[in-house]
Design a protein around this nucleic acid. Structure first.
Length: 424
RNA sequence: GGAGAGGUGGCAGAGCGGUUGAAUGCGGCGGUCUUGAAAACCGCUUUACCCGUAAGGGUAACGGGGGUUCGAAUCCCUCCCUCUCCGCCA
């Protein structure tokens, strides 16, 4: 949620930045700010009446103490009208505040100046590409066929016990999964991130705070009996650790990392591109989360990108870094880099990481503040990024490293897997 | 699931109808002392919103919502959450 103060004071800048979202900025800002104006004038009026009422109450108290009962009764009689009008004003104010809040919630984050203009993923900027795209031997297969051939990935068993999009890993496939998680966690720990094991279900307040609700209501699994949501990413519980907190400045930055499974309904996305592990309802991910002072947040974003690059290099995967255009960015983000790896058998780029700076968009929703140099509370900036998302990393790893003898495990991972080759 | 206790400021913890926005302690900020630091002592220190160029003023908030009252952190109702004991389970 953007800060109201920002919209009021920098309407032009807000409008300019939001234009990149390809939305009707002027009418959105117009209604929001006019609601805000009504709200303020109503509050001013209400505050005045309440001040009068408070004064009367004090007078009555004094009169009663002084034993002047008749005068007190007379004063009481005068409160009735005031009370009625404050009641009315209060109702109007509540209504306006709710409307304003509802409008504010529908405004996406304002893209950073560096964010390219564009509507579709094709208009994202390729920042860099690194690594060599492997040439596969004749008869190379996509990962879902490899999984079946070698017997370590079973999409069909997932269908049986749960439904489509819930992969089952076994044997060396399961071990590879666990190895990657450990590898990513260790790397993040080395980089100074504190490991967190959070709950995998969150309440509505948490989902609202990071921006999943109300925007992406239908994308989360909802355990309705207890009104809890299965997390679509560890970002939600980990960032919410600091909801409603007021930190001392020296507590920042906060760097956290967590592994969790991620659950996504992916409603409406079916077809050829979602075969195998390309898009599933449950996958594993190691997520890094940072809370930063505003002046440091963009340096932190770059630092997170460097961290992820290090992981991809260690895994010997060809990758590219995209700067998302305004039309392809998530609702809550001010700037997002996507990292994609090349999966050679499918001959496509797969998104394995999304690294975003939310500026104060999330912290405003969750009241995550710190004391600035002047001791005044200010909203912190929040950032997060996948480091990394497993299912697609596994897909690329399997496809790119297949040989007639078996599937090669990158050197960096071998201490974790305990084997250097997946064999039949 | 049954019974009980409780939810107060950055934190801990008093208050239980009328200058209580809230004692006290810790923390934080400033000062005295000191070559410097610590200790000790003194002072200041909640947040959000509104009006105001500012100085300053106003309103709200003691888990959420509603009620009683001229007046509620304090009384009543309701919902949520936490803790303890019992049951059940890992």
């Amino acid at each position: 949620m953007l800060e109201l103060q920002f919209l009021r004071d920098h309407r032009e800048e807000a409008a300019e930045r939001l234009t990149k979202r390809n939305i009707d900025v002027q009418s959105l800002l117009g209604t929001t700010l006019s609601l805000d104006e009504q709200r303020r004038s109503t509050q001013t009026e209400l505050d005045g009446r309440l001040a009068e009422l408070n004064g009367l109450s004090r007078t009555i108290g004094d009169l009663l103490k002084a034993g002047r009962k008749d005068e007190a009764e007379a004063a009481k009689a005068r409160t009735a009208d005031l009370k009625a009008s404050t009641q009315q004003l209060k109702e109007r104010l509540d209504g306006l505040e709710k409307d304003l809040q509802d409008h504010l919630c529908t405004i996406p984050n304002a893209p950073n100046a560096k964010v390219p203009v564009g509507k579709t993923p094709e208009e994202n900027t390729v920042v860099l590409q690194e690594g060599t795209i492997p040439e596969l031997h004749a008869g190379a297969k996509p990962h879902w066929e490899l999984g079946e051939d070698y017997g370590f990935l079973h999409m069909d068993l997932g269908v049986k016990i749960t439904g489509a999009g819930f992969p089952v890993y076994s044997g060396q496939g399961a071990k590879l999964q666990r190895a990657l998680i450990s590898f990513f966690l260790d790397k993040a720990a080395d980089a100074g991130y504190r490991e967190i094991i959070p709950p995998h279900l969150v309440n509505g307040a948490s989902a609202f705070a990071t921006g999943q609700l109300p925007d992406k209501e239908g994308q989360m699994y909802h355990a309705t009996v207890d009104d809890l949501y299965l997390i679509p990413t560890a970002e939600v519980p980990i960032t919410n650790l600091y909801r409603d907190e007021l930190l001392e400045a020296d507590a920042l930055p906060v760097k956290m990392v967590g592994y969790t499974p991620c659950f996504r309904r992916e409603a409406g996305s079916y077809g050829a591109h979602v075969r195998g592990l390309n898009r599933v309802h449950q996958f594993d991910k190691v997520e890094i989360v940072r809370l930063e002072k505003p002046e440091n947040s963009y340096a932190a974003l770059e630092d997170m990108v460097e961290h992820v690059k290090g992981l991809l290099r260690a895994l010997e995967l060809p990758y590219r870094q995209l700067l998302l255009c305004g039309g392809d960015m998530g609702f809550a983000s001010a700037m997002t880099y996507d990292m994609e790896v090349y999966s050679a058998a499918q001959q496509r780029w797969l998104e394995v990481s999304s690294i975003s700076n939310f500026e104060t968009f999330q912290s405003n929703r969750m009241k995550l503040r710190y004391r600035g140099e002047d001791r005044k509370p200010r909203l912190a900036h929040t950032l997060n990024g996948s480091a990394l998302a497993l299912a697609r990393i596994v897909a690329a790893l399997l496809e790119n490293n297949q040989t007639p003898e078996g599937i090669r495990i990158p050197k960096a991972l071998q201490p974790y897997t305990g084997f250097s080759m997946i064999v039949k």
